[in-house]
């Protein structure tokens, strides 16, 4: 699906990630951990073509990201659902409209997904908030709305950047359960988090690989997880 080969990336002069390789095979479940500022978000941005690697090769569904046009990247993104760390909603649209936006933007008739939209909003527990505007939501509600938007296109890959960043433990577990459910449906999942409890909890439900960014390298996490 998505593969990084010997990728080096840095903002400005110094490298933040050096010689990183990662393969997100179909149906796999990955955790990406590491201290704040280690480069988790940066790595995720490389995975959906927002950042282009300076060295090495990032391939999105078999295509070299560096040689893809903007429109080709856009098409690839329809197959990758991303839960951004800062959610990235259009604040003048309702929750339902935001969640449906990837479908609208892809040119598919959105009345066809009206049913899916209802189900999806029910699934993430936001049916009552469908007509609210994003700024009116709590942190957890925003994260769940972001997850709903990330999966509405039935993407093959889901990348979640700190999806439990600003929500309580109970809600984090609920969100984790949703992602595990998606993985059971065959989706490739990658979750960036520094919440080790969440990872321990997940390992009870799913065979997850845990990776850690340290010293600009990507390592398999220790046995403590």
């Amino acid at each position: 699906m998505i593969e990084l080969q010997d990728v080096t990336y840095g903002y400005g002069g110094t490298a933040l990630l050096a010689g990183i390789s990662l393969r997100l095979a179909q149906g796999s479940f990955h955790f990406l951990t590491g201290p704040s500022g280690a480069g988790k978000t940066t790595l995720i941005k490389l995975c959906y073509g927002e950042l282009i690697a300076g060295q090495g090769r990032v391939s999105l569904f078999g295509q070299d990201a560096a040689s893809m046009s903007r429109d080709e990247i856009a098409l690839a993104r329809r197959r990758i659902g991303v839960v951004h760390q800062d959610c990235q909603f259009l604040d003048h649209l309702t929750v339902a409209e935001n969640v449906a936006l990837p479908v609208v933007v892809s040119g598919r008739p959105s009345q066809q997904i009206e049913r899916d939209l209802e189900d999806l909003l029910g699934w993430v527990g936001l049916a009552a908030h469908r007509d609210a505007l994003p700024p009116e939501l709590s942190g957890g509600e925003r994260q769940r709305a972001a997850l709903a938007r990330a999966v509405i296109m039935s993407p093959e890959v889901i990348l979640a950047d700190e999806p439990t960043g600003n929500i309580d433990w109970e809600m984090s577990l609920r969100l984790l359960t949703l992602l595990v459910e998606l993985n059971r449906m065959g989706k490739t999942v990658l979750i960036a988090t520094h919440d080790l409890n969440l990872i321990r909890q997940a390992k009870k439900q799913v065979a997850a690989r845990v990776l850690r960014i340290a010293n600009r390298q990507l390592l398999a996490a220790g046995a403590e997880l």
């Binding site: 856009a74 098409l75 993104r77 990235q88 936006l101």
Partner: peptide
């Protein structure tokens, strides 16, 4: 910012 978000969710230039 709106354009950024639209790009993130897979909108092409023409859209």
């Amino acid at each position: 910012q709106v354009i950024r978000v639209l790009r993130l969710i897979g909108a092409q230039d023409a859209y």
